[in-house]
Design a protein around this nucleic acid. Structure first.
Length: 445
RNA sequence: GUGGUUGUAGCUCAGUUGGUUAGAGCACCGGUUUGUGGUACCGGGGGUCGGGGGUUCAAGUCCCCUCAAUCACCCCA
């Protein structure tokens, strides 16, 4: 056991683990490319102000920040969106809109680690900038769904709950809540499912301090409003409120676009989702697994003011993040993690030091041709070597003994069905390429 | 940050009311007479029993502290 352990909340990935991570990255990347998104990357370490300026004091204590040797206040990135906003903002004027970008990177936050929640985790970020209309939100929600479906998950395994901070603000306005108190009230809404009635009422009283709104009544109204699950019911509640009705036509476009793209059964209206993050401005959504814990798999929404706040142009934007930790837990429980297979194509069995030069000559030749090749570094006996080939995970063994080398051939042995055939060493590249593609039949006379 | 649970070889665990050089299975390495592999048998390496301190003639076994994992709360980018 090593004396020095890895830091709490940080993971080590042995090859088997790294292969799973690679699979996750691969599905994310492939799916985003299918939607026309392009990959970007930003520094892992950023000036502390990038994250504190917009997020406020509460988030500072969760930042993985410190002072560097030059006396700079720096922080590992807790998310990639501020970096994205800065990068896009700097060059947005010259970029074709809409901008479709995605990134896969490790993010950090200094918190007490728990299952599904670490100090370092990988996350997919997909963002669409330059389009303010709901069609952009729909595109991102579709991409989010496809990023989950790409792993083999069914539409019934998860649900994307869609909510709307704009609609909430319009609703609260219609209930007489001053604009200044609206955010605090949404904070209470966020806790509706978890808090006790007494705590919620107290929280609501604090949120409404200095106003004439009745806390108990608003709490009841808000609870009812949050429970609405259909556009029709929302329209009824909106009644003659023009602002809310206008917003609901946006909803219609959002939902019809999602339907046209074929993702109706993946989404549901759920106004209990408000998301804590301060910079969200419009539609927000979270993807949950439908079984068991119902943990959040992904979350995102519209942040139309962030780019400008960070010094860029006035650029509307919508995006989401999807972490690897919870996703992996879900894939494991659904048995959707592919078997680990990372062996070489060929294991060259060098039977004796007399033939070693000839064997290594072919090893090098095969490697230059792009094959994955391993061989025994030390001399060994036949049964031992064939077992080595097996445990290395090779598909085929290439036997180099004195007989074979004398005849100018190598013997190919399938480690799966144990068939054997000889191949002239002069033809080794095309012959083995055929073996990999068509199997042993390609060289069995 | 607060509280509960857990911590013995790479993995899964045994270790009796504290008592001699801490064990098993799997895994790994080697061998079973020298060119054909998932079985069987034999052997080997590997643990300062998470770390530190204390009680005792004696502690993996009891007490305290600490570290880590995990669960709940908090918070969620």
């Amino acid at each position: 056991m090593a004396d020095i352990q890895s830091l709490p909340g940080f993971r080590e990935f042995y090859p088997e683990e790294r292969a799973i991570l690679g699979h996750v990255f691969e599905v994310w990347r492939r799916t985003c490319r299918r939607y026309g998104f392009r990959e970007w990357e930003s520094p892992v370490l950023e000036p502390l102000e990038l994250f504190t300026e917009k997020s406020g004091e509460e988030i500072v204590r969760q930042l993985f920040n410190f002072e560097d040797k030059g006396g700079r206040q720096v922080s590992l990135r807790p998310e990639m969106t501020p970096s994205l906003a800065r990068m896009v903002g700097a060059k947005a004027n010259g970029m074709a809109k809409p901008i479709r970008w995605f990134a896969i990177g490790e993010n950090y936050r200094y918190e007490k680690p728990q299952k599904g929640r670490l100090r370092a985790f990988y996350q997919l970020n997909a963002d669409l900038l330059g389009e303010a209309g709901p069609t952009a939100d729909a595109e991102l929600i579709a991409l989010c769904a496809d990023c989950l479906i790409g792993f083999g998950l069914q539409a019934t395994d998860f649900k994307i709950r869609i909510s709307d901070r704009t609609l909430w603000f319009k609703y609260l306005e219609s209930q007489g809540v001053p604009e200044a108190n609206a955010s605090a009230v949404l904070g209470v809404v966020d806790k509706l499912e978890r808090g006790s009635p007494a705590d919620l009422l107290q929280a609501m009283n604090i949120a409404l301090a200095g106003t004439k709104v009745d806390a108990a009544k608003l709490l009841a109204d808000v609870r009812t409003f949050a429970a609405i699950r259909s556009l029709d019911d929302l329209t009824k509640v909106a009644g003659s409120d023009a602002a809310m009705q206008a917003r609901l036509t946006e909803w219609q476009l959002l939902l019809s676009t999602i339907a046209s793209l074929g993702f109706s059964e993946c989404v549901t209206i759920d106004l209990t989702i408000v998301r804590g993050l301060a910079y969200y401005t419009g539609f927000v959504f979270e993807a949950f697994e439908t079984s068991g814990d119902a943990r959040a798999l992904a979350g995102g929404g519209r942040y139309d003011t962030l780019v400008k706040k960070l010094g860029g142009p006035d650029l509307p934007a919508v995006g989401f993040g999807m972490g690897d930790v919870t996703l992996r837990d879900l894939l494991a429980s659904k048995k959707l993690i592919p078997a680990y297979a990372d062996g070489p194509d060929f294991f060259v069995m060098v039977l004796g030091n007399d033939v070693r030069p000839s064997a290594l000559e072919d090893v090098a030749k095969l490697r230059r041709a792009g094959f994955r090749v391993e061989y025994n570094l030390r001399d060994g006996k036949f049964p031992k070597l064939i077992q080595s080939a097996e445990t290395a995970g090779a598909k085929f063994a290439l036997i180099y003994g004195t007989d074979e080398v004398a005849k100018g051939v190598t013997k190919v042995r399938s480690l799966v069905d144990r068939k054997e055939a000889e191949v002239p060493r002069a033809d080794i590249i095309p012959a083995l390429r055929a073996v990999l593609e068509e199997g042993m039949d390609a060289i069995i006379p």
